[in-house]
């Protein structure tokens, strides 16, 4: 290990930073989109109207039975076909992540909604609030407060999964690290550094989750 040289990291910092920014923004947007779409899917799944609930259940089960990498491929090839024009790797990957994560989020959110006592819905109904108002003001705020730790945990998993976007030639943090590693011939330094960065971010995330859980039980 005499020639262990950390200067390779410093020299390539701007390039790596670009990659990290892509990973983080993809994660952030996908979490946001996944929660919005996931909430909608959860509400559909809990609907008393069978066609709507079956449609959501079918979607969730289909997506959850397919590897993420395949979904990324699908959208990379299908979205341009559907739209008639290319939309770029980033957006196709983003759509794939949102569609994929929504299936997982919807199951978390569904459990969250079901954890709210039926009496709360009755109270809202008895006041004359309509279905959407009850969800918006009474059920979802309580459900999300209960679910927050799991939602963040899922976000951490998603952050790690963004490393799969190399398959559509996006330069995320993992891909950037491996490009540097190969072109500079510094595999050990770069892969240790990459692991360290992932560890720090994910560990910080899980500390945050623990704090949320403590706040919830306090």
């Amino acid at each position: 290990m005499d020639d262990f040289d950390v200067s390779v990291v410093i020299d390539n910092l701007p390039f790596l930073w670009d990659g990290l920014q892509l990973s983080l923004s993809l994660t952030g947007l996908a979490v946001l989109g996944g929660i919005v779409l996931g909430t909608l899917l959860a509400l559909m799944r809990l609907s008393g109207f069978a066609p709507v609930s079956l449609l959501a259940a079918g979607y969730v089960n289909l997506i959850r039975s397919v590897p993420l990498i395949l979904v990324i491929f699908w959208f990379y090839f299908l979205v341009p076909l559907a739209l008639g024009r290319p939309i770029g790797s980033f957006y196709s990957a983003l759509i794939a992540f949102v569609m994929f994560e929504a299936a997982y989020y919807s199951e978390i959110i569904r459990a969250g909604i079901q954890s709210i006592r039926k009496g709360q819905v009755h109270a809202g109904q008895a006041t004359g609030l309509n279905y959407w108002q009850i969800q918006r003001y009474i059920v979802l705020p309580q459900a999300f407060r209960n679910m927050l730790p799991i939602l963040v945990t899922q976000g951490i998993i998603l952050f790690q999964d963004t490393s799969l976007v190399f398959v559509v030639s996006l330069r995320d943090f993992m891909t950037a690290s491996s490009i540097v590693a190969r072109t500079e011939g510094r595999l050990a330094e770069m892969y240790i550094f990459a692991a360290l960065v992932y560890f720090v971010i994910c560990f910080a995330g899980s500390l945050f989750v623990r704090r949320l859980q403590r706040a919830k039980t306090a």
Partner: peptide, 8 residues
């Protein structure tokens, strides 16, 4: 209601 059902 029996269990109040205030919005917590």
């Amino acid at each position: 209601f029996q269990h109040f059902e205030l919005y917590p």
